[in-house]
Measured scan of single mutants.
Amino acid sequence: GKMTGIVKWFNADKGFGFITPDDGSKDVFVHFSAIQNDGYKSSDEGQKVSFTIESGAKGPAAGNVTSL
């Protein structure tokens, strides 16, 4: 299901970062391709987002990331 969290950091040059879930669980990796914004796929530190957890090649990753 959908979770909410805060972007801990995001490196636009490398195209990835981490989200800290609101439920206190482990930080989740986020790749720019998962960000659902139109246009520039980046996110700012401290941005509140909703997301799903997908199982990626390197473990859990955020999917369907949407700014709230």
Rank of each mutant, 00 (worst) to 15 (best):
F10E: 03
K58G: 09
V49W: 02
L68G: 05
D22I: 06
N11E: 05
D27Y: 02
D22V: 05
Q47E: 11
F29C: 06
G1C: 13
G1V: 14
F18V: 06
F16H: 02
T4W: 04
S55N: 14
S25W: 04
T66V: 13
P21W: 06
G17F: 06
K8W: 04
A34R: 05
D13E: 14
T52D: 07
N37S: 13
G24N: 06
N64Y: 08
F32E: 09
H31Q: 04
H31A: 04
F51G: 02
V49R: 00
D38M: 14
K41A: 11
G17H: 00
Q36E: 11
K58A: 09
S42H: 13
S33W: 06
F32S: 11
Q36I: 14
K48D: 03
F10W: 14
T4E: 03
D38K: 11
F29W: 07
K8P: 02
S55V: 14
Y40Q: 09
Q36D: 11
A12G: 08
G59Q: 04
K8D: 04
F51H: 01
T4S: 07
I35S: 03
N37Q: 12
S55K: 13
P60Q: 09
G63Y: 12
G39W: 14
G24V: 02
S43T: 15
G63C: 14
S67N: 13
G15K: 06
E45W: 15
N11K: 04
N11G: 04
G39V: 10
K2A: 09
P60K: 09
G1W: 06
I35F: 15
E45Y: 14
A12N: 10
Q47L: 11
F32N: 07
S43N: 09
N11Q: 04
I53F: 06
E45C: 15
D44P: 15
K8Y: 05
D13T: 13
E45L: 14
F18K: 01
I35R: 00
A61N: 09
K14I: 09
I53E: 02
G39C: 14
S33V: 06
K8M: 04
G56W: 09
K48F: 08
A61E: 15
Q36L: 13
H31N: 04
L68R: 06
S42Q: 09
Q47M: 13
D13C: 15
G5P: 00
S55Q: 14
G5S: 00
D23M: 04
D27F: 02
D27R: 03
I19Y: 00
D44E: 15
G1N: 12
E54N: 09
I35K: 01
W9D: 03
S67I: 15
K2F: 12
F16R: 00
V7R: 00
I6E: 05
S33T: 12
S42D: 08
Y40I: 12
E45D: 08
F29L: 04
F51C: 04
P21I: 04
Y40F: 14
D23N: 09
T66M: 10
D38I: 13
F51R: 00
P60R: 14
D38Y: 14
F32D: 06
V7Y: 03
G17K: 00
K26C: 11
I6M: 07
G15S: 03
P21M: 05
G15M: 05
N37Y: 13
F29A: 00
V65P: 01
T66G: 05
I19C: 02
F16N: 00
G56S: 13
G56R: 08
G17I: 05
G17D: 01
Q47Y: 11
I53N: 03
T66R: 12
V28Q: 00
A12W: 15
I53W: 08
M3K: 11
I6G: 02
Q36K: 10
S42M: 13
T20H: 07
D23R: 02
D44Q: 15
P60E: 07
G63P: 01
S67P: 14
L68M: 10
S50H: 06
V65A: 02
I6R: 11
A61H: 14
P60W: 08
V65T: 01
E45K: 15
G17P: 00
V28W: 03
M3C: 11
G59T: 03
F10N: 01
D23V: 05
L68E: 07
K48L: 10
P21K: 00
V30M: 13
S25K: 05
H31I: 05
D38L: 14
G56C: 09
G56L: 07
D38P: 13
S67Q: 11
D22R: 00
V28L: 10
S67H: 14
S50Y: 08
Y40S: 09
F10Q: 03
K48R: 14
I19L: 05
G56F: 08
N64Q: 09
S55R: 11
I53H: 03
F51A: 02
V49E: 01
K14M: 12
S43P: 15
G63Q: 14
H31L: 06
S43D: 07
G17T: 01
G39K: 10
L68P: 04
S33D: 07
S33F: 05
S25Y: 04
W9N: 02
N11D: 13
S50V: 08
D38G: 13
Y40W: 15
N37A: 13
K14D: 05
Q36P: 07
A12M: 11
N64F: 09
A62L: 00
L68N: 07
T4N: 05
D13N: 11
D23I: 06
K41P: 11
N64M: 09
S55D: 12
F29Y: 09
S42P: 11
W9T: 00
I35Q: 03
D44V: 15
A57V: 13
I6P: 00
G1E: 11
V30Q: 01
H31W: 09
Q47V: 12
V30P: 04
G46T: 07
K14F: 09
F16S: 01
A62E: 01
I53A: 03
E54W: 09
G59N: 05
G59V: 02
T52I: 11
G1I: 13
G5N: 01
D27T: 03
A61V: 15
T4M: 07
I19S: 00
M3S: 06
N37K: 12
G46F: 10
P21S: 04
S55I: 15
G59H: 05
D23S: 06
L68A: 08
V30W: 08
A57T: 12
G56I: 04
F16W: 14
K48G: 06
D38F: 13
I19K: 00
V65Y: 00
W9P: 00
V65K: 02
M3T: 06
G15P: 00
N11S: 10
F29M: 01
K14G: 06
F51I: 02
H31F: 08
S33G: 06
K58P: 07
G1Q: 13
A62H: 02
D13G: 09
S25C: 06
K26Y: 07
K58T: 08
K58Q: 10
S50A: 10
L68D: 07
V49F: 03
G39S: 11
A57K: 12
S25T: 10
N11F: 05
T66S: 09
F10R: 00
G1P: 13
F32Y: 12
S25A: 06
S55F: 15
K41H: 13
N64K: 08
N11M: 02
K48W: 13
T66D: 04
W9M: 02
K8S: 06
S25R: 06
D22N: 05
K58C: 14
A34D: 08
V28M: 04
